[in-house]
Design a protein around this nucleic acid. Structure first.
Lengths: 239, 239
DNA sequence: AAGTGGTCTAGACCACTCA
DNA sequence: GAGTGGTCTAGACCACTTG
Protein backbone atom coordinates (compact mmCIF):
# COMPACT_ATOMS: atom_id res chain seq x y z
CA UNK A 1 0.00 0.00 0.00
CA UNK A 2 2.81 2.38 0.85
CA UNK A 3 3.45 3.31 -2.78
CA UNK A 4 -0.13 4.54 -2.98
CA UNK A 5 0.00 6.61 0.15
CA UNK A 6 0.06 9.87 -1.73
CA UNK A 7 -2.87 9.03 -3.96
CA UNK A 8 -5.93 11.20 -3.53
CA UNK A 9 -8.25 8.19 -3.42
CA UNK A 10 -9.35 7.17 0.08
CA UNK A 11 -7.18 4.44 1.49
CA UNK A 12 -10.08 2.08 2.20
CA UNK A 13 -11.10 2.18 -1.47
CA UNK A 14 -7.55 1.33 -2.50
CA UNK A 15 -7.61 -1.53 -0.01
CA UNK A 16 -10.87 -2.78 -1.51
CA UNK A 17 -9.24 -2.92 -4.94
CA UNK A 18 -6.16 -4.65 -3.56
CA UNK A 19 -8.31 -7.28 -1.87
CA UNK A 20 -10.31 -7.80 -5.07
CA UNK A 21 -7.06 -8.31 -6.98
CA UNK A 22 -5.97 -11.00 -4.55
CA UNK A 23 -9.31 -12.74 -5.03
CA UNK A 24 -9.16 -12.42 -8.83
CA UNK A 25 -5.59 -13.76 -8.80
CA UNK A 26 -6.88 -16.87 -7.05
CA UNK A 27 -4.73 -16.29 -4.00
CA UNK A 28 -7.85 -16.91 -1.92
CA UNK A 29 -10.45 -19.43 -3.06
CA UNK A 30 -14.22 -19.11 -3.03
CA UNK A 31 -15.84 -20.51 0.09
CA UNK A 32 -12.63 -20.26 2.10
CA UNK A 33 -11.81 -17.89 4.92
CA UNK A 34 -9.32 -15.08 4.41
CA UNK A 35 -6.94 -13.90 7.17
CA UNK A 36 -8.46 -12.04 10.09
CA UNK A 37 -8.69 -8.29 9.92
CA UNK A 38 -5.80 -7.63 12.32
CA UNK A 39 -3.42 -9.72 10.19
CA UNK A 40 -4.68 -8.12 6.97
CA UNK A 41 -4.19 -4.66 8.47
CA UNK A 42 -0.59 -5.54 9.38
CA UNK A 43 0.02 -7.04 5.91
CA UNK A 44 -1.14 -3.88 4.17
CA UNK A 45 0.38 -1.55 6.76
CA UNK A 46 -2.88 0.17 7.66
CA UNK A 47 -4.89 0.59 10.83
CA UNK A 48 -7.43 -2.11 11.71
CA UNK A 49 -10.31 0.37 11.45
CA UNK A 50 -9.41 1.23 7.87
CA UNK A 51 -9.10 -2.42 6.90
CA UNK A 52 -12.48 -3.05 8.49
CA UNK A 53 -14.04 -0.31 6.39
CA UNK A 54 -12.75 -1.95 3.21
CA UNK A 55 -13.99 -5.38 4.33
CA UNK A 56 -17.42 -3.98 5.25
CA UNK A 57 -17.68 -2.44 1.79
CA UNK A 58 -16.91 -5.75 0.12
CA UNK A 59 -19.49 -7.45 2.30
CA UNK A 60 -22.12 -4.89 1.25
CA UNK A 61 -21.18 -5.64 -2.38
CA UNK A 62 -21.73 -9.35 -1.74
CA UNK A 63 -18.10 -10.30 -2.35
CA UNK A 64 -17.46 -11.40 1.24
CA UNK A 65 -19.49 -12.70 4.14
CA UNK A 66 -18.31 -11.92 7.67
CA UNK A 67 -19.45 -14.02 10.58
CA UNK A 68 -18.68 -13.13 14.15
CA UNK A 69 -16.64 -15.80 15.88
CA UNK A 70 -15.93 -17.62 12.59
CA UNK A 71 -14.15 -15.46 10.09
CA UNK A 72 -14.42 -13.67 6.75
CA UNK A 73 -15.32 -15.85 3.77
CA UNK A 74 -15.21 -15.35 0.03
CA UNK A 75 -18.65 -15.82 -1.48
CA UNK A 76 -18.98 -18.60 -4.02
CA UNK A 77 -20.38 -17.02 -7.19
CA UNK A 78 -21.29 -20.49 -8.48
CA UNK A 79 -23.62 -21.16 -5.58
CA UNK A 80 -27.31 -21.26 -6.49
CA UNK A 81 -27.95 -18.30 -4.22
CA UNK A 82 -25.43 -16.07 -5.97
CA UNK A 83 -26.18 -17.25 -9.51
CA UNK A 84 -29.85 -16.37 -8.96
CA UNK A 85 -29.26 -13.03 -7.26
CA UNK A 86 -30.91 -11.02 -10.06
CA UNK A 87 -33.87 -13.38 -10.36
CA UNK A 88 -36.78 -11.59 -8.74
CA UNK A 89 -39.52 -14.02 -9.72
CA UNK A 90 -41.38 -15.49 -6.77
CA UNK A 91 -43.94 -18.26 -6.58
CA UNK A 92 -47.36 -17.88 -4.94
CA UNK A 93 -45.70 -18.93 -1.67
CA UNK A 94 -43.14 -16.13 -1.92
CA UNK A 95 -40.17 -18.42 -2.52
CA UNK A 96 -37.81 -17.83 -5.45
CA UNK A 97 -38.80 -19.53 -8.68
CA UNK A 98 -35.75 -21.60 -9.54
CA UNK A 99 -35.07 -21.17 -13.21
CA UNK A 100 -32.81 -23.31 -15.39
CA UNK A 101 -32.78 -21.89 -18.88
CA UNK A 102 -31.95 -23.53 -22.16
CA UNK A 103 -29.36 -21.39 -23.97
CA UNK A 104 -29.75 -20.94 -27.71
CA UNK A 105 -26.94 -20.67 -30.29
CA UNK A 106 -24.56 -17.78 -29.77
CA UNK A 107 -24.01 -15.41 -32.69
CA UNK A 108 -21.50 -12.60 -33.15
CA UNK A 109 -22.23 -9.30 -34.88
CA UNK A 110 -21.58 -5.57 -34.81
CA UNK A 111 -23.57 -3.76 -32.13
CA UNK A 112 -26.67 -1.84 -33.13
CA UNK A 113 -26.96 1.80 -32.13
CA UNK A 114 -29.19 0.86 -29.22
CA UNK A 115 -26.79 -1.83 -28.03
CA UNK A 116 -23.94 0.68 -28.17
CA UNK A 117 -25.95 3.02 -25.99
CA UNK A 118 -27.15 0.52 -23.41
CA UNK A 119 -23.80 -1.27 -23.07
CA UNK A 120 -21.60 1.84 -23.29
CA UNK A 121 -19.71 0.50 -26.31
CA UNK A 122 -17.69 2.08 -29.09
CA UNK A 123 -19.64 2.31 -32.36
CA UNK A 124 -19.29 -0.89 -34.40
CA UNK A 125 -18.04 -2.83 -31.38
CA UNK A 126 -18.63 -6.57 -31.62
CA UNK A 127 -21.27 -8.25 -29.48
CA UNK A 128 -22.49 -11.77 -28.84
CA UNK A 129 -26.23 -12.38 -29.04
CA UNK A 130 -28.20 -15.36 -27.85
CA UNK A 131 -31.49 -16.34 -26.26
CA UNK A 132 -32.44 -18.13 -23.09
CA UNK A 133 -35.69 -20.05 -22.67
CA UNK A 134 -36.96 -20.86 -19.20
CA UNK A 135 -39.13 -23.88 -18.47
CA UNK A 136 -41.31 -24.95 -15.60
CA UNK A 137 -42.84 -28.38 -15.67
CA UNK A 138 -41.75 -28.77 -19.30
CA UNK A 139 -43.53 -25.61 -20.37
CA UNK A 140 -41.74 -22.43 -21.45
CA UNK A 141 -42.83 -19.40 -19.42
CA UNK A 142 -40.04 -16.88 -20.08
CA UNK A 143 -37.53 -16.05 -22.75
CA UNK A 144 -34.60 -13.66 -22.88
CA UNK A 145 -32.80 -11.95 -25.73
CA UNK A 146 -29.30 -11.39 -24.41
CA UNK A 147 -26.50 -9.15 -25.69
CA UNK A 148 -22.98 -9.03 -24.22
CA UNK A 149 -19.83 -7.22 -25.42
CA UNK A 150 -17.53 -9.60 -27.30
CA UNK A 151 -14.47 -7.73 -25.99
CA UNK A 152 -15.39 -8.67 -22.43
CA UNK A 153 -16.27 -12.31 -23.11
CA UNK A 154 -13.91 -13.47 -25.91
CA UNK A 155 -14.60 -16.98 -27.16
CA UNK A 156 -18.05 -17.11 -25.59
CA UNK A 157 -19.53 -18.85 -28.63
CA UNK A 158 -17.63 -21.99 -27.56
CA UNK A 159 -18.83 -21.67 -23.95
CA UNK A 160 -22.62 -21.95 -24.20
CA UNK A 161 -22.94 -23.88 -20.96
CA UNK A 162 -21.58 -20.84 -19.09
CA UNK A 163 -24.17 -18.40 -20.42
CA UNK A 164 -27.11 -19.58 -18.31
CA UNK A 165 -26.85 -16.50 -16.10
CA UNK A 166 -24.73 -13.40 -16.01
CA UNK A 167 -23.23 -14.18 -12.60
CA UNK A 168 -21.81 -17.52 -13.72
CA UNK A 169 -20.73 -15.99 -17.02
CA UNK A 170 -18.89 -13.13 -15.35
CA UNK A 171 -17.26 -15.42 -12.80
CA UNK A 172 -15.88 -17.60 -15.61
CA UNK A 173 -14.18 -14.54 -17.07
CA UNK A 174 -12.79 -13.41 -13.70
CA UNK A 175 -15.36 -10.66 -13.17
CA UNK A 176 -17.75 -9.95 -10.32
CA UNK A 177 -21.24 -8.58 -10.88
CA UNK A 178 -22.50 -5.53 -8.99
CA UNK A 179 -25.66 -3.52 -9.40
CA UNK A 180 -28.30 -3.83 -12.09
CA UNK A 181 -31.21 -1.74 -13.32
CA UNK A 182 -34.37 -3.38 -14.60
CA UNK A 183 -37.09 -1.64 -16.58
CA UNK A 184 -40.44 -3.37 -16.37
CA UNK A 185 -43.36 -2.94 -18.71
CA UNK A 186 -46.29 -5.04 -19.80
CA UNK A 187 -47.64 -5.78 -23.22
CA UNK A 188 -49.64 -8.32 -25.26
CA UNK A 189 -48.02 -11.56 -26.39
CA UNK A 190 -47.30 -11.58 -30.12
CA UNK A 191 -48.06 -14.65 -32.22
CA UNK A 192 -44.57 -16.13 -31.83
CA UNK A 193 -44.38 -15.82 -28.06
CA UNK A 194 -48.01 -16.86 -27.65
CA UNK A 195 -47.04 -20.09 -29.39
CA UNK A 196 -43.92 -20.63 -27.28
CA UNK A 197 -45.74 -20.00 -24.01
CA UNK A 198 -48.89 -21.77 -25.17
CA UNK A 199 -51.18 -18.83 -24.36
CA UNK A 200 -53.67 -16.85 -26.42
CA UNK A 201 -52.18 -14.11 -28.64
CA UNK A 202 -52.61 -10.79 -26.86
CA UNK A 203 -52.33 -12.33 -23.39
CA UNK A 204 -50.52 -9.94 -21.02
CA UNK A 205 -46.80 -10.56 -20.59
CA UNK A 206 -44.32 -8.97 -18.21
CA UNK A 207 -41.47 -7.47 -20.19
CA UNK A 208 -38.04 -6.88 -18.72
CA UNK A 209 -35.18 -4.72 -19.97
CA UNK A 210 -32.15 -5.17 -17.73
CA UNK A 211 -28.52 -4.10 -17.73
CA UNK A 212 -26.18 -5.81 -15.27
CA UNK A 213 -22.96 -4.04 -14.35
CA UNK A 214 -19.60 -5.24 -13.12
CA UNK A 215 -18.64 -4.18 -9.57
CA UNK A 216 -16.95 -1.04 -10.87
CA UNK A 217 -19.82 -0.04 -13.16
CA UNK A 218 -18.80 -1.62 -16.46
CA UNK A 219 -21.92 -2.84 -18.35
CA UNK A 220 -21.76 -6.61 -18.80
CA UNK A 221 -25.11 -7.76 -20.13
CA UNK A 222 -28.23 -6.30 -21.71
CA UNK A 223 -31.25 -8.51 -21.62
CA UNK A 224 -34.77 -8.18 -22.99
CA UNK A 225 -37.10 -10.63 -21.27
CA UNK A 226 -40.66 -11.72 -21.94
CA UNK A 227 -42.43 -13.54 -19.16
CA UNK A 228 -45.79 -15.27 -18.87
CA UNK A 229 -46.31 -15.17 -15.10
CA UNK A 230 -49.26 -17.50 -14.58
CA UNK A 231 -48.94 -17.40 -10.80
CA UNK A 232 -46.54 -15.70 -8.43
CA UNK A 233 -45.02 -12.29 -8.91
CA UNK A 234 -41.94 -10.16 -9.48
CA UNK A 235 -40.59 -8.88 -6.17
CA UNK A 236 -39.14 -5.36 -6.02
CA UNK A 237 -37.53 -4.14 -2.81
CA UNK A 238 -37.84 -0.39 -2.33
CA UNK A 239 -35.35 1.48 -0.15
CA UNK B 1 -27.43 7.70 27.47
CA UNK B 2 -25.74 6.69 30.70
CA UNK B 3 -28.85 5.03 32.13
CA UNK B 4 -28.83 2.71 29.13
CA UNK B 5 -25.17 1.80 29.38
CA UNK B 6 -25.91 -1.69 30.63
CA UNK B 7 -28.40 -2.49 27.91
CA UNK B 8 -27.39 -5.29 25.59
CA UNK B 9 -28.34 -3.27 22.50
CA UNK B 10 -25.39 -1.68 20.68
CA UNK B 11 -24.85 1.89 21.76
CA UNK B 12 -25.04 3.29 18.23
CA UNK B 13 -28.52 1.81 17.80
CA UNK B 14 -29.65 3.40 21.05
CA UNK B 15 -28.19 6.68 19.82
CA UNK B 16 -30.14 6.34 16.58
CA UNK B 17 -33.38 5.98 18.57
CA UNK B 18 -32.52 8.93 20.78
CA UNK B 19 -31.83 11.12 17.75
CA UNK B 20 -35.12 10.01 16.15
CA UNK B 21 -36.97 10.94 19.33
CA UNK B 22 -35.50 14.42 19.26
CA UNK B 23 -36.64 14.80 15.66
CA UNK B 24 -40.12 13.45 16.42
CA UNK B 25 -40.38 15.80 19.42
CA UNK B 26 -39.79 18.70 17.06
CA UNK B 27 -36.60 19.74 18.84
CA UNK B 28 -34.97 19.92 15.40
CA UNK B 29 -36.95 21.03 12.38
CA UNK B 30 -36.96 19.56 8.89
CA UNK B 31 -34.53 21.24 6.53
CA UNK B 32 -32.41 22.60 9.36
CA UNK B 33 -28.94 21.55 10.43
CA UNK B 34 -28.43 19.63 13.67
CA UNK B 35 -25.36 20.14 15.88
CA UNK B 36 -22.04 18.83 14.59
CA UNK B 37 -21.00 15.33 15.46
CA UNK B 38 -18.42 16.36 18.07
CA UNK B 39 -21.01 18.39 20.01
CA UNK B 40 -23.57 15.61 19.72
CA UNK B 41 -21.04 13.07 20.99
CA UNK B 42 -20.32 15.26 24.03
CA UNK B 43 -24.06 15.82 24.63
CA UNK B 44 -24.74 12.11 24.70
CA UNK B 45 -21.50 11.22 26.45
CA UNK B 46 -20.21 8.90 23.74
CA UNK B 47 -17.15 8.78 21.51
CA UNK B 48 -17.29 10.67 18.20
CA UNK B 49 -16.85 7.44 16.24
CA UNK B 50 -19.92 5.91 17.83
CA UNK B 51 -22.01 9.02 17.21
CA UNK B 52 -20.83 8.97 13.60
CA UNK B 53 -22.01 5.39 13.20
CA UNK B 54 -25.50 6.37 14.40
CA UNK B 55 -25.59 9.39 12.07
CA UNK B 56 -24.40 7.31 9.11
CA UNK B 57 -27.19 4.83 9.78
CA UNK B 58 -29.81 7.57 9.77
CA UNK B 59 -28.39 8.90 6.54
CA UNK B 60 -28.67 5.46 4.93
CA UNK B 61 -32.30 5.37 6.09
CA UNK B 62 -32.91 8.74 4.43
CA UNK B 63 -33.65 10.57 7.67
CA UNK B 64 -30.58 12.81 7.47
CA UNK B 65 -28.32 14.18 4.77
CA UNK B 66 -24.70 14.86 5.61
CA UNK B 67 -22.65 17.25 3.52
CA UNK B 68 -18.94 17.74 4.01
CA UNK B 69 -18.10 21.31 4.94
CA UNK B 70 -21.76 22.22 5.52
CA UNK B 71 -23.38 20.12 8.19
CA UNK B 72 -25.96 17.44 8.94
CA UNK B 73 -29.52 18.25 7.85
CA UNK B 74 -32.90 16.74 8.63
CA UNK B 75 -34.61 15.64 5.43
CA UNK B 76 -37.92 17.30 4.66
CA UNK B 77 -40.47 14.51 4.23
CA UNK B 78 -42.84 16.96 2.55
CA UNK B 79 -40.40 17.67 -0.27
CA UNK B 80 -41.44 16.32 -3.65
CA UNK B 81 -38.36 14.11 -3.73
CA UNK B 82 -39.19 12.40 -0.44
CA UNK B 83 -42.96 12.18 -1.01
CA UNK B 84 -42.31 10.38 -4.31
CA UNK B 85 -39.61 8.06 -3.02
CA UNK B 86 -41.67 4.90 -3.60
CA UNK B 87 -42.85 5.99 -7.05
CA UNK B 88 -40.85 3.92 -9.50
CA UNK B 89 -42.68 4.95 -12.68
CA UNK B 90 -40.43 6.54 -15.27
CA UNK B 91 -41.23 8.27 -18.54
CA UNK B 92 -39.69 7.30 -21.88
CA UNK B 93 -36.87 9.72 -21.08
CA UNK B 94 -36.10 7.95 -17.80
CA UNK B 95 -37.27 10.78 -15.58
CA UNK B 96 -39.76 10.16 -12.75
CA UNK B 97 -43.42 10.44 -13.74
CA UNK B 98 -44.77 13.02 -11.34
CA UNK B 99 -48.08 11.77 -10.04
CA UNK B 100 -50.73 13.81 -8.24
CA UNK B 101 -53.58 11.51 -7.29
CA UNK B 102 -57.18 12.30 -6.53
CA UNK B 103 -58.09 10.68 -3.21
CA UNK B 104 -61.50 9.06 -2.94
CA UNK B 105 -63.74 8.95 0.16
CA UNK B 106 -62.24 7.26 3.19
CA UNK B 107 -64.21 4.48 4.80
CA UNK B 108 -63.66 2.59 8.04
CA UNK B 109 -64.25 -1.13 8.55
CA UNK B 110 -62.99 -4.27 10.25
CA UNK B 111 -59.95 -5.74 8.52
CA UNK B 112 -60.40 -8.77 6.29
CA UNK B 113 -58.32 -11.85 6.94
CA UNK B 114 -55.96 -10.86 4.14
CA UNK B 115 -55.58 -7.32 5.47
CA UNK B 116 -54.82 -8.71 8.92
CA UNK B 117 -52.07 -10.85 7.38
CA UNK B 118 -50.48 -8.20 5.17
CA UNK B 119 -50.57 -5.43 7.77
CA UNK B 120 -49.70 -7.58 10.78
CA UNK B 121 -52.92 -6.67 12.62
CA UNK B 122 -54.97 -8.28 15.37
CA UNK B 123 -58.08 -10.04 14.03
CA UNK B 124 -61.02 -7.64 13.75
CA UNK B 125 -58.72 -4.60 13.93
CA UNK B 126 -60.18 -1.49 12.32
CA UNK B 127 -58.79 -0.19 9.03
CA UNK B 128 -59.37 2.78 6.76
CA UNK B 129 -59.90 2.07 3.07
CA UNK B 130 -59.80 4.48 0.18
CA UNK B 131 -58.75 4.78 -3.44
CA UNK B 132 -56.36 7.02 -5.30
CA UNK B 133 -56.72 7.81 -8.99
CA UNK B 134 -53.74 9.16 -10.92
CA UNK B 135 -54.11 11.41 -13.94
CA UNK B 136 -51.82 12.51 -16.72
CA UNK B 137 -53.03 15.10 -19.13
CA UNK B 138 -56.56 14.73 -17.72
CA UNK B 139 -56.64 11.01 -18.35
CA UNK B 140 -56.56 8.41 -15.58
CA UNK B 141 -53.71 5.92 -16.00
CA UNK B 142 -53.42 4.33 -12.55
CA UNK B 143 -55.58 3.61 -9.56
CA UNK B 144 -54.81 2.35 -6.07
CA UNK B 145 -56.88 0.56 -3.47
CA UNK B 146 -55.31 1.55 -0.18
CA UNK B 147 -55.70 0.05 3.30
CA UNK B 148 -54.12 1.50 6.46
CA UNK B 149 -54.56 0.52 10.13
CA UNK B 150 -57.01 2.86 11.87
CA UNK B 151 -55.05 2.54 15.12
CA UNK B 152 -52.01 4.14 13.49
CA UNK B 153 -53.87 6.93 11.68
CA UNK B 154 -56.79 7.92 13.97
CA UNK B 155 -59.13 10.49 12.49
CA UNK B 156 -57.81 9.97 8.96
CA UNK B 157 -61.32 10.18 7.47
CA UNK B 158 -61.22 13.92 8.21
CA UNK B 159 -57.74 14.31 6.66
CA UNK B 160 -58.22 13.27 3.03
CA UNK B 161 -55.79 15.84 1.71
CA UNK B 162 -52.99 14.10 3.63
CA UNK B 163 -53.57 10.67 2.07
CA UNK B 164 -52.06 11.43 -1.35
CA UNK B 165 -48.99 9.37 -0.52
CA UNK B 166 -47.82 7.27 2.38
CA UNK B 167 -44.77 9.45 3.11
CA UNK B 168 -46.84 12.60 3.65
CA UNK B 169 -49.44 10.60 5.56
CA UNK B 170 -46.87 9.09 7.91
CA UNK B 171 -45.15 12.42 8.43
CA UNK B 172 -48.43 14.01 9.49
CA UNK B 173 -48.77 11.37 12.19
CA UNK B 174 -45.16 11.77 13.37
CA UNK B 175 -43.88 8.63 11.66
CA UNK B 176 -41.05 8.05 9.21
CA UNK B 177 -41.27 5.53 6.37
CA UNK B 178 -38.56 2.95 5.81
CA UNK B 179 -38.42 0.00 3.46
CA UNK B 180 -41.18 -1.35 1.24
CA UNK B 181 -41.79 -4.52 -0.73
CA UNK B 182 -43.68 -4.43 -4.02
CA UNK B 183 -45.09 -7.45 -5.81
CA UNK B 184 -45.57 -6.90 -9.51
CA UNK B 185 -47.78 -8.90 -11.82
CA UNK B 186 -49.60 -8.28 -15.07
CA UNK B 187 -53.13 -9.02 -16.09
CA UNK B 188 -55.96 -7.97 -18.42
CA UNK B 189 -58.02 -4.87 -17.67
CA UNK B 190 -61.51 -5.72 -16.47
CA UNK B 191 -64.52 -3.80 -17.80
CA UNK B 192 -64.49 -1.23 -14.98
CA UNK B 193 -60.83 -0.35 -15.25
CA UNK B 194 -60.90 -0.46 -19.03
CA UNK B 195 -63.53 2.26 -18.80
CA UNK B 196 -61.60 4.36 -16.30
CA UNK B 197 -58.37 4.17 -18.30
CA UNK B 198 -60.16 4.42 -21.63
CA UNK B 199 -58.54 1.27 -23.04
CA UNK B 200 -59.94 -1.92 -24.54
CA UNK B 201 -61.12 -4.55 -22.04
CA UNK B 202 -58.39 -7.17 -21.73
CA UNK B 203 -55.59 -4.68 -22.39
CA UNK B 204 -52.49 -5.56 -20.32
CA UNK B 205 -52.14 -3.68 -17.04
CA UNK B 206 -49.27 -3.61 -14.56
CA UNK B 207 -50.56 -4.65 -11.14
CA UNK B 208 -48.83 -3.65 -7.93
CA UNK B 209 -49.20 -5.03 -4.43
CA UNK B 210 -47.12 -3.01 -2.00
CA UNK B 211 -46.64 -2.81 1.74
CA UNK B 212 -44.75 0.19 3.12
CA UNK B 213 -43.18 -0.12 6.56
CA UNK B 214 -42.27 2.40 9.22
CA UNK B 215 -38.53 2.79 9.94
CA UNK B 216 -38.69 0.11 12.63
CA UNK B 217 -40.65 -2.38 10.53
CA UNK B 218 -44.25 -1.58 11.49
CA UNK B 219 -46.55 -2.03 8.45
CA UNK B 220 -48.17 1.30 7.55
CA UNK B 221 -49.95 0.86 4.23
CA UNK B 222 -51.09 -1.90 1.93
CA UNK B 223 -51.83 -0.84 -1.59
CA UNK B 224 -53.18 -2.68 -4.63
CA UNK B 225 -52.40 -0.71 -7.78
CA UNK B 226 -53.55 -1.07 -11.38
CA UNK B 227 -51.58 0.83 -13.99
CA UNK B 228 -51.98 1.38 -17.69
CA UNK B 229 -48.43 2.23 -18.69
CA UNK B 230 -48.79 3.54 -22.24
CA UNK B 231 -45.16 4.65 -22.42
CA UNK B 232 -42.27 4.59 -20.00
CA UNK B 233 -41.56 1.86 -17.49
CA UNK B 234 -41.30 0.76 -13.88
CA UNK B 235 -37.70 1.00 -12.70
CA UNK B 236 -36.38 -1.66 -10.32
CA UNK B 237 -32.88 -1.32 -8.89
CA UNK B 238 -31.23 -4.65 -8.16
CA UNK B 239 -28.46 -4.90 -5.56
C1' DA C 1 -9.43 -21.51 25.94
C1' DA C 2 -8.30 -19.57 21.69
C1' DG C 3 -9.67 -17.09 17.77
C1' DT C 4 -12.91 -14.38 15.24
C1' DG C 5 -15.64 -10.28 13.99
C1' DG C 6 -18.50 -6.39 16.46
C1' DT C 7 -18.39 -2.41 19.31
C1' DC C 8 -16.33 1.55 21.39
C1' DT C 9 -12.87 4.93 22.64
C1' DA C 10 -10.14 9.32 21.99
C1' DG C 11 -7.99 11.45 19.52
C1' DA C 12 -5.34 13.53 14.72
C1' DC C 13 -5.40 15.36 10.24
C1' DC C 14 -7.61 16.29 5.63
C1' DA C 15 -11.15 18.13 2.19
C1' DC C 16 -14.73 20.92 1.54
C1' DT C 17 -17.95 25.06 2.16
C1' DC C 18 -18.89 29.58 3.13
C1' DA C 19 -18.67 34.14 5.11
C1' DG D 1 -10.08 31.37 8.51
C1' DA D 2 -13.55 29.06 11.02
C1' DG D 3 -16.51 25.24 10.96
C1' DT D 4 -18.12 21.01 9.01
C1' DG D 5 -18.08 16.12 7.74
C1' DG D 6 -14.61 12.38 5.83
C1' DT D 7 -10.62 9.65 6.70
C1' DC D 8 -7.30 7.35 9.52
C1' DT D 9 -4.92 5.79 13.60
C1' DA D 10 -4.05 2.52 17.57
C1' DG D 11 -5.60 0.59 20.56
C1' DA D 12 -9.38 -1.86 24.36
C1' DC D 13 -13.05 -4.82 25.44
C1' DC D 14 -17.19 -7.69 24.25
C1' DA D 15 -20.03 -11.47 21.92
C1' DC D 16 -19.90 -15.36 19.45
C1' DT D 17 -18.08 -19.84 17.49
C1' DT D 18 -15.37 -23.79 17.60
C1' DG D 19 -12.10 -27.35 19.22
Amino acid sequence: MSENRFSTRPLYLQLREALLERIAAGQWKAGNAIPNEADLARDFGVSPGTMRKALDLLEAQRVLTRRQGRGTFINDQNSAEMAQRYNKLRGPDGRPVVVEPEVGPIGEAAATEQEVRRLGLEPQARVYRFTRTYFREHRAFMMDEVVVPAAIFPGLEKQREVATDVVTLAQRYGLLTGSAAERITTGPADAIRAGIFNVAPGAPLLNFDRVVFELNGLPLEWRLGYCHLSSGYYLAALG
